[in-house]
Design a protein around this nucleic acid. Structure first.
Length: 490
RNA sequence: CGGGGUAUAGCGUAGCCCGGCUAGCGCGCCUGCUUUGGGAGCAGGAGGUCGCAGGUUCGAAUCCUGCUACCCCGACCA
């Protein structure tokens, strides 16, 4: 491989990009602000997608698919949604090209102008609620629990691979309920699904909470979110779940007849996570040698590397290795045998470390003779020679331990990057010098929130769900009901 | 869209101030032999409209003008 990873101390942003690119995950497309996800990167996304999809289905949801093009007028129907999404959208204005008169290629055929422009979906609330109107008539049609896996486009001014690209992949759940209570429960349930996924599968601890009015999704009554802490002390919003109230039902006239024969607007939620989770995964666990993947999401959990000294030993080493492969597969461990002779063992070691494969098993002539194997773990970068007997059990236990260790390390990091402050001086000091999450009192006004953002670039990442102790706002000294979590964010 | 920067082989770059280039180097790539327990060694080789367009000059990667793309910092955001 070409360039090596830049040490983190030099430039975190470059370090992140080096990992994304050198580990073969993704690259910038020639098309502005879009990304190309390479096969290995996509395999990781597929693992995430498959597990999330399973969890959605286990909570009663079904998948469906809606159009990528949304008539412009749909966006005018929900007032605050317009505010949030009327900008930065890709707009289809024409439907045909023609040969340029001067022979220089093709140009847009001005005669093929659309009567109504189509918006390339930045999110699908509007087109889905326009459709739901026809699907929902009775309380018997509710709840309607639908998820869509799709790509969306937001014409961001500045992009960053995985974290903020013009086009990204995501899932968006859109549900309709008969009562407010049910809808709130749904929004909270899906926040729970996201947090379980982040912690148990991504080994990434997250804080759960509510967004302030300022950070709330355009059109939502409440936005729930999970927030993770990256190694450089910046927060990353990893998922959101919105209680939409009756806003979209009213805007798109979605009503149902209740048991009591009353015509009522339905209650709604929407929730989503995106390929941004790939960025979160990378920035949570990776080190200077490249990607580090939690075993539950790694496309390859164990790589077997044979080491050949001479021709006579080759068949013996391979036979020994195939035996181990079979035992691991019996335990449902995902194994890759790299017996190609194009690269040296040292090259392969470095390569699979870069790709974040959790466990490496190396086998050479020495091992065949002594009935041993060399087992290396990616998270600690340690290796040891162990007996051949019970290798599958040992590797399985190791994978479990790596999963646990990654979570613990990330949790430890977050603990060290979490502060509680009471004065403005402390607040500024921690935000500027230490970074991380800062628990501080806030008077609850958008005005104060914006002032703090202006002065320190820190925003309210979330308002914790649990009760808290009252206190005084860190900026204004006015009363505060509980501490909220501030941080600089991606 | 504001402020700063960059553009030379697949990637990373030297040369630019002070014009003389037939454009140098590292990684990668190809061939051969020897290798293989931490990114192998040696030998040979392929690969360039120096971002685009114009200008100055005997001569431009180098100087001038315009354009384009990308990166960083803001505003925007999952």
């Amino acid at each position: 491989m070409g360039s090596k990873i830049t040490p983190r101390s030099e430039n975190y942003s470059q370090w992140y990009l080096d990992i994304v690119q050198n580990a073969g995950l993704a690259e910038n497309s020639a098309v502005r602000g879009c990304m190309v996800i390479k096969p290995y990167g996509f395999a990781i996304w597929e693992r995430m997608r498959d597990e999330l999809d399973r969890m959605f289905k286990e909570t009663g949801h079904s998948n469906a698919y809606f159009p990528i093009f949304i008539p412009k007028s749909f966006f005018s129907k929900e007032a605050s949604h317009v505010e949030g999404f009327a900008k930065e959208c890709a707009v289809v204005t024409h439907y045909r090209l023609k040969n340029a008169p001067d022979g220089s290629g093709v140009v847009v055929d001005e005669d093929a102008k659309l009567e109504e422009e189509l918006i390339v979906r930045p999110t699908s609330e509007t087109i889905i609620w326009d459709t739901y109107r026809t699907w929902i008539q009775s309380y018997r049609d509710l709840p309607l629990l639908i998820n869509q896996w799709a790509n969306v486009v937001r014409w961001e001014m500045r992009t960053r691979l995985f974290l903020r690209t013009a086009e990204f992949l995501w899932q968006e759940g859109h549900t309709a309920h008969a009562t407010e209570k049910e809808a709130v429960e749904e929004a909270e349930r899906m926040l729970g699904v996201y947090s379980t996924f982040a912690e148990d599968w991504m080994a990434m601890p997250v804080l759960k909470g509510l967004k302030s009015a300022n950070e709330r999704f355009a059109g939502a009554v409440e936005t729930y979110c999970i927030e993770a802490m990256m190694q450089d002390g910046k927060a990353l919003q990893a998922g959101t779940s919105h209680f939409l109230g009756q806003n979209f039902a009213k805007a798109f006239d979605v009503k149902f007849l209740s048991k009591e024969n009353q015509l009522e607007h339905v209650w709604a939620t929407s929730w989503g996570v995106s390929t941004r989770l790939m960025g979160a995964l990378i920035m949570t666990h990776s080190d200077d040698k490249g990607l580090v993947l939690p075993p539950t999401l790694a496309p390859i959990q164990v790589v077997l590397v044979p080491i050949f000294k001479n021709e006579e030993m080759k068949p013996k080493i391979l036979e020994y290795l195939r035996g181990i492969e079979a035992e691991l597969k019996e335990k449902k461990i995902v194994v890759k045998v790299d017996d190609s002779e194009n690269y040296s063992p040292g090259y392969k070691f470095a390569e699979y470390e870069m790709k974040g494969v959790p466990v490496r098993v190396a086998i050479g002539a020495r091992d065949v003779e002594n009935n041993t194997v060399e087992v290396a773990r990616r998270d600690m970068l340690t290796k040891e020679s162990v007996g051949r007997e019970g290798i599958a059990e040992r590797v399985f236990a190791l994978l479990v331990d790596i999963q646990r260790n990654l979570y613990q390390k990330a949790l430890e990091l977050r603990k060290n990057l979490t502060s509680t402050v009471d004065t403005w001086e402390e607040f500024v000091d921690v935000i500027e010098n230490k970074g991380g999450f800062v628990y501080a009192h806030w008077d609850g006004t958008t005005e104060t929130e914006e002032k703090i953002k202006e002065k320190t670039k820190a925003t309210i990442r979330l308002i914790p769900l649990d009760e808290g102790e009252p206190g005084k706002c860190v900026l204004t000294g006015r009363p505060s009901v509980k501490r909220v979590v501030f941080a600089k964010a991606y």
